[in-house]
């Protein structure tokens, strides 16, 4: 009886939260139609926006993978002074409001900024450019890849790496042939969440790069210029594609899990 009450209570609370997430999404689709949704994919502007959003998301995720996985590994395996401070720095973008992040990125990367000035001399400009979107996405996405990959690296015994070293593998080869394959799922999940966070960002991007227009900016401008129906159609189309990519990614993660465990 008590057991049933326990599960009934937890079930009810879980359903409430899931409903809280799903109902607004369903509400969004109640403002659109199937033809309306598909009309998005015949709209050149919308397709351009998607391309910019997803390409910027991929580039930022790829750069974060190269820079973030080594940091995640160091945080998972090594003990060093100041590790807590480094973890706090990693988590900073999570607590900074999106618009503040946008302002920080702008002030750092505009042509007179600390990093923007030398880079603009080298021909790399960030204001209203794809690189501007990429750096903003990187800033907000960094904690996701680092923290997820870190958790993955701590999920297997470091003795496996020691065995590899005792068999003649140096640190790099041990990392590539043992640590990385054993954390494929963690890294993949981290990359997917990082990409999703990037393509869903708005406030952090709009200050440095209103143009080229990304999906969240496009939806917002549709809302301001054309009202709810037009923005709901664009939002519905964007969400549909993002969810499809997310589901495929999750399936890939479970396949990776099976592969590494089989």
């Amino acid at each position: 009886m008590r057991k049933n009450l326990f599960f009934a209570t937890f079930f009810l609370l879980s359903v409430l939260l899931l409903a809280f997430i799903v109902i607004p999404i369903l509400v969004l689709y109640s403002f659109t139609s199937v033809t309306g949704l598909f009309s998005n994919f015949l709209n050149g502007d919308f397709l351009n926006v998607l391309e910019v959003t997803f390409v910027a998301g991929l580039i930022s995720t790829a750069i974060l993978a190269i820079l973030g996985i080594p940091l995640a590994y160091m945080m998972a395996r090594e003990h060093f002074p100041g590790k807590n401070i480094i973890q706090a720095i990693v988590d900073l973008p999570l607590v900074i409001p999106d618009t503040v992040a946008g302002l920080i990125i702008f002030l750092t990367f505009y042509s007179g900024g600390v990093l923007g000035a030398p880079l603009s001399h080298a021909g790399l400009n960030f204001v209203d450019t794809l690189p501007g979107i990429v750096v903003a996405m990187m800033f907000v996405g960094a904690p996701f890849i680092i923290n997820t990959a870190r958790a993955g690296f701590t999920s297997f015994d470091p003795k496996l790496e020691r065995v590899a070293m005792s068999l003649g593998a140096g640190r790099f080869r041990t990392f590539l042939s043992v640590s990385l394959p054993l954390n494929l799922e963690g890294i993949w999940n981290g990359l997917v969440i990082t990409w999703a966070k990037g393509v869903a960002s708005f406030g952090s991007i709009i200050i440095i790069a209103y143009f080229p227009v990304i999906a969240p900016t496009y939806i917002y401008s549709q809302f301001l210029l054309s009202g709810i129906p037009a923005s709901a159609v664009a939002a519905g189309g964007f969400l549909l594609i993002t969810l499809a990519i997310f589901i495929v990614s999750r399936l890939t993660a479970s396949r990776l899990t099976k592969w590494t465990r089989s």
Partner: peptide, 18 residues
């Protein structure tokens, strides 16, 4: 360690699961 030419076997064998 990779240059020492020592074999090691741990308690739980630590076979590479992948």
């Amino acid at each position: 360690p990779e240059k020492r030419n020592l074999g090691i076997v741990y308690q739980d064998y630590q076979l590479f699961p992948h």
